[in-house]
Structures are given as C-alpha cells and as structure tokens.
C-alpha cells in the first residue's frame, strides 16, 4: 500500500465532498432546520399519554433520565448514523446515478479509501450541525445535563463516530450490489430508529426485541452518550459499551473490505456497473 497515493485519494474525495456540501445553500440551511421537527416528533409522540411534564416524571420514577434529554441524545446519534448512511453508504451509488461509476472503478484507487474519505467528510459535515441541534434543543426543550467527566463524553462521541463510520463504509460497498440503494437506505432508517431506542430508553422494549437492539452499533452509541451526558457516567460505567462499539467498528470494516472487493470483481465481470 502506497501511503502517499492513499492520502491523495482521501484528500481529493474529502475536499470534493465538502465543496459539494457547501455549494448547496439550501442544504446547509436544511441541515440545521431538519432535526428540529424530527426531535419534536420524537418527544411529542409521548404526548399521547399525558402532558410532557407527567411523562417525564413517570420516566424518572422508573429510573430513566428526563424525557427531553433522553430523546435529544438518541436523536443526535440517529441523525449521525443517518448522515453516514446517506453520505457514505450511498456515495458509490451516487456515482452510478451521475454516470461516473465506471470511471471511478477503472482507476487504480483503493475503493476503501474512497469510502473512508466520504465517511470522514460526512462526519465533518455532521459535526457542526450537531452542535447547532444541541444548542437549539437545549433552549427549546430545556435539558439538565449531568456530566461528571468531559473526557468520557468526548470518548463516547468519538467511539460512536468511529463505529457509525464503519457501518457507513460497509453499506457503501453493499449498496453497489443493488440498484435500489436509496430504498434500502430509507428502509433501514425506521427499524434502526425503533430498535436502537432513539425515541425511548431501549430497556422499555420487550426482552425479545432487545436482542435485536444489541447487535446494532447505534444502540451502544446512544447508551454511552445518555449515560455520560445525562446520568453522570464515567469510564468505569461505560467501558463495556465502548468496547462493543470498537468491536463492531472492526467487524464492519473487515466486512466492508471483503464486500467492496467482491462487488468490484462481480460488477466488472458481469459488466453491470453502469446499469441503474
């Protein structure tokens, strides 16, 4: 592996994606507005069963953090996953739609580097609006954080980002196998939102459904961040979930490596790269 060549590929894709993102003013504005109704929807779904104050009280009596904080942290991790699914997962498929996929695949670049660069640019893109959402939701819904260790919060955030990046890279390879990547990406949003406990604490799910929850990296991201931001958790209380996040990141990256190789071979052999 030639590190300089990989770095040049990485940089080219990264800069291109950032330029693409900033070129669409509507999208830059949308990224800030978009999460607010989704966040409000996640919170107000509880409004079927009482006022938000009553609901929050019931949650706290059962040993969970207050409603707004629980949902805000869950929604932020979900949005991060969403951004990586679309930004990285659908990136190669987008090349197909734009008629440039053949050009990309006949170049001697490492496709994993292309996907990783797309993932990192999506993270950069997502980072600034995560700060905006956090600030706005703090003002709109009023959250009382209970942070005892800022390094732990930082570790949780970075670990979640690494795991979600790996998931995005995996789907990037996988989606090339199908011609319905956008349907699959959209179809994956709703079950992940449900099983990972974005709109409720995951322990509220029936036991059998929780088995599904604990094979999804988003669940661990939400658990660690809720614990470190809302319940004053430190490294001693979250380390197991952090280990799970890195283990999943490793598994998804290895899977991505083999998937992209298989995709490349199969698509070139069948001559179906350009078809959509």
């Amino acid at each position: 592996m030639n590190v300089i060549r990989e770095w040049r590929t990485f940089k080219a894709i990264f800069v291109r994606n950032i330029k693409l993102f900033t070129a669409y003013k509507a999208w830059v504005i949308a990224t800030v507005i978009w999460p607010i109704p989704l966040l409000a929807l996640n919170i107000l779904q509880w409004g079927l069963f009482g006022t938000l104050g009553e609901v929050s009280e019931t949650l706290e009596q059962s040993g969970f953090p207050p409603l707004a904080g629980t949902i805000i942290v869950g929604t932020i991790v979900y949005l991060l996953y969403n951004r990586l699914l679309w930004g990285t997962g659908v990136s190669i498929q987008s090349e197909r739609w734009m008629g440039t996929i053949e050009v990309l695949f006949v170049t001697p670049t490492n496709k994993m580097t292309v996907l990783l660069a797309s993932g990192v640019s999506s993270l950069v893109e997502a980072s600034w609006w995560i700060v905006c959402i956090f600030g706005m939701s703090w003002m709109l819904f009023g959250v009382q954080p209970s942070i005892t260790s800022w390094p732990t919060v930082f570790l949780c955030l970075v670990s979640t980002m690494v795991a979600l990046l790996a998931v995005g890279v995996f789907f990037g390879g996988f989606f090339v196998l199908t011609r319905a990547a956008d349907q699959l990406a959209s179809g994956l949003q709703a079950p992940i939102r449900f099983f990972s406990g974005v709109a409720f604490p995951v322990n509220v799910l029936p036991q059998t459904l929780q088995f599904v929850s604990f094979v999804i990296p988003v669940t661990y991201g939400i658990l660690t961040l809720r614990d470190s931001i809302l319940s004053g958790g430190d490294i001693n209380t979250i380390w197991l979930n952090i280990v799970a996040l890195y283990a999943m990141a490793a598994i998804f990256l290895v899977l991505a490596h083999f998937t992209i190789k298989a995709v490349e071979r199969r698509a070139k052999k069948n001559g179906t790269l350009y078809m959509f």
């Binding site: 779904q45 079927l48 069963f49 059962s62 449900f194 509220v204 029936p206």
Partner: peptide
C-alpha cells in the same frame, strides 16, 4: 410500533 412501545410503558 414506537407508539405501541411507549404506550405499553406509560
């Protein structure tokens, strides 16, 4: 299903 889970809890 999310409403159902919330409903079961509440």
């Amino acid at each position: 299903l999310t409403s159902w889970v919330i409903g079961q809890f509440m």
